[in-house]
Simulated scan of single mutants.
Amino acid sequence: MRALPRTGLSVCAAGLVLALGGCGASSSPSAGPPPAPAPTASSAAPAPASTPTPTPAPTPTSTPAPTPTLAPTPTGAPAPTGAPAPTGATTPTPTPTEATTPSPSASSAARLIPYAGGESVGVEIDDPADVSELRGAPESFKRFVARTVEQLQAEEKCPGAAVGVTVQTLRTDGFAIGGVNACGGYEALWAQVDGTWKEVYGTQDSLDCAVLRRYRVPSDVAGDTCYDYKGKKEHSYHQA
């Protein structure tokens, strides 16, 4: 057998020592970090990034159509009360004027009473009680004549003279003509003015046309002629 050189033995011994030392170092805690674990299938390759799922567009919400309001059922048209006043202008609603009913003394119901005629000069009243002779005359006229006679007698200045009133013609709608006697005399025209009897004219001559027209004295009381004292002329006169 061939003997190995010494140098070779030394190398083998040294290698053996190193080999044994490496085995012991694997169980020593100070031998160094443990070997990295083998990668698992899940960590060996990264999972592919997931594709994001697109968010669906919001479905438009439909606005419900408004429910039509039903018109109220008419219960009948109101009765017309007249044309409405125009808008924008304040117009007082005209109040209807009541028709004026003619009074019994209106011309349509007037009655002419002639007390004079023939041999009679009219009804002569020299005492207030004599007004009862004025047949058909309104009571208001009788009272007026009675007061006139009383006043004439109270103011009498001619002793022995006839004092009183003579009524010749009367129309019941408020006109009369006659004479007044007291220290002389004159023709008097009486009329009912604003509901009151009064003497509206007295003269010893012709009746004045202006007075007759002013009071609308009917011709059947005043006659059919009058005198214009301004124009100095007589005129025919007619008034219903």
Rank of each mutant, 00 (worst) to 15 (best):
T59P: 00
P58F: 04
P86V: 03
P78C: 07
T59V: 09
P60F: 01
T75M: 11
T67C: 01
T81D: 11
P64Q: 01
S62T: 14
A85S: 13
A71S: 10
P84A: 13
A57I: 10
P80I: 05
P58R: 11
T55W: 04
A85Q: 13
T73E: 13
P72W: 00
A83V: 15
A77H: 03
A57G: 02
P54I: 13
G76V: 06
T63C: 09
T87C: 09
T53V: 15
A65W: 01
A57Y: 04
T91I: 15
G76Y: 00
P54N: 07
P84F: 08
A85G: 11
P68D: 11
P68L: 13
A57P: 15
G88E: 01
T69M: 05
P54G: 07
P54Q: 04
P78F: 07
T69H: 03
T55L: 12
P66D: 02
G76A: 07
T53D: 13
P56H: 01
L70V: 14
A89Q: 10
T69S: 07
T91F: 10
T69N: 02
P86Y: 01
L70W: 11
T55F: 03
T87E: 10
P58W: 00
A85T: 14
T87D: 08
A77Q: 09
S62K: 13
A71T: 15
G76T: 00
P72N: 03
P80W: 07
P56Y: 07
A77D: 08
P64V: 04
P64E: 05
G76M: 03
T53Y: 05
T91R: 07
P72M: 08
P92M: 10
P92N: 12
P56E: 03
T87R: 05
P68C: 10
L70P: 10
P86D: 04
A83L: 14
P72F: 08
T67W: 00
P78A: 14
A79Q: 11
T75Q: 10
P72Y: 02
T81S: 15
S62M: 14
T61C: 04
P80V: 09
P74G: 03
P72L: 06
P86H: 03
P68G: 06
T90K: 10
T93H: 02
A89D: 03
A71E: 08
P56I: 12
S62D: 11
A57R: 09
A83Y: 06
T81F: 02
P80D: 06
T81C: 06
T91S: 12
T61S: 14
A77Y: 08
A85Y: 05
G88P: 03
T93S: 12
T63N: 06
A71W: 00
A65G: 01
A83D: 11
A79L: 15
T91A: 15
T67Y: 02
T61Y: 02
T53S: 13
A85F: 05
P56N: 09
T90F: 14
T90H: 09
G88S: 02
P72Q: 07
A77L: 14
P74Y: 01
P68I: 13
T75L: 14
T87Q: 11
T55K: 13
P80N: 05
L70S: 12
T73V: 15
T63K: 13
T63L: 09
P60Q: 01
P92Y: 07
A85P: 15
A65H: 00
A65E: 07
P58C: 03
A83P: 12
S62C: 10
T87K: 06
A89G: 03
P56T: 08
A65C: 00
P74I: 07
A79K: 12
